[in-house]
Amino acid sequence: MKIDWAALGSVFGVSLVVTVALVGLFTLGIVGLSKQEQARTAGGGTAAIPARVGAYACFALCAAAVAYGIYLIVV
């Protein structure tokens, strides 16, 4: 009986890091979008743009992660 501690360890590490990173990114995106909306309703024109761009960047990274996940399933 040989327990593959290395594999178990990497599953643990990868799950932890990827989950926290993805959830963090996505939350930043959500927060960014809601900030942008607040700014718009408050009448601030230019302040909204960085928040919106940042949010979309976060979502794009998350979408890339999902695409990679699908790639892993297919291959």
Partner: peptide, 10 residues
């Protein structure tokens, strides 16, 4: 998200 990640990683 954690479930999906752990499943794919494993």
């Amino acid at each position: 998200t954690s479930a999906a990640t752990a499943i794919l990683a494993s």
